[in-house]
Design a protein around this nucleic acid. Structure first.
Lengths: 141, 141
DNA sequence: GTAATTTCAGACAAGATAGTCTGAATATAT
DNA sequence: ATATATTCAGACTATCTTGTCTGAAATTAC
């Protein structure tokens, strides 16, 4: 597992990021994505299939088939991807693991963690795939 | 796994939090901690042993034995506990899982995540177990 | 010194996550 | 039609995390 995302989710984000850098009407194969991103082929296949059934990607079989974003990258934000793969544990669960922790009965870190959680959510909601892709290209030189 | 801490780490923090609420010179047994915090006995035992070998707890065998904080709770901060159990992955690893991500070659979320990471670290460093314990007692009523 | 209570140590089992393999279904090109 | 390249589906394995079990070692009380 990564820091806050599962490995599946990290792979999903990496793949989507790459898809956003491709021409909007072209399809990219698992083979190509797996090679470029150094992700196990069949593992990535499952993840992409899952993203397809959840409506985030389109898929097409046969030669010249592959995957593509189902919507323009401006309209996909990070949180929808994260939610599709990892769910919303970040939003709900107590950071110290107390099951009884909540608004009316907060643990000692509840409020301070709340600020951080909001920052994370804001980051994930405000970042569209388009923005992310643009900044990624800038940062690679 | 919890949100950012492993379950082991959550249990460790919960246990230490409870120890901080006990008289400084008394020992608390695994049995009591496991019951109060609803943590599997032997699993907690391992965690406490690990914290003991790392110098965060003192332990004593035999009847009336158990565990106690090795230092006054004012002198223990959260990050030392987290580091002892989970290591420093939060500080080092890329949030998107890119192995090549770093200061000179940042991923698209690197800087924004950096702010959040710092907030987390600040939270963990500034919070002593004493503070945490005090605020926990306040919040339970 | 014997019994009771505890930590200590390490092997083991269960569950979750990550990763692999094989073959079927589908689409394209020739 | 046939060959090829792809996704799709599901079973299988590996690895990591979590949790369980058993017995030894230490300490205390009697």
């Amino acid at each position: 597992m990564g820091i806050i995302f599962s490995r599946q989710c990290e792979y999903a984000l990496q793949a989507i990021l790459h898809l956003a850098s491709q021409p909007r009407d072209s399809m990219t194969s698992i083979r190509e994505l797996a090679a470029k991103l150094d992700i196990p082929y069949h593992f990535l296949a499952k993840i992409l299939q899952s993203l397809a059934t959840k409506g985030i990607l389109n898929s097409q079989r046969g030669p010249a088939g592959g995957f593509a974003l189902s919507k323009p990258p401006e309209e996909i934000n990070l949180i929808s991807v994260v939610e599709a793969i990892d769910g919303l544990a970040i939003s709900n669960q107590c950071v110290l693991g107390f099951p009884e922790c909540g608004g009316s009965n907060p643990c000692a870190l509840h409020h301070q963690w709340g600020d951080i959680r909001e920052a994370v959510q804001k980051m994930l909601m405000n970042k569209s795939i388009a923005k992310l892709s643009r900044e990624t290209r800038l940062s690679r030189t």
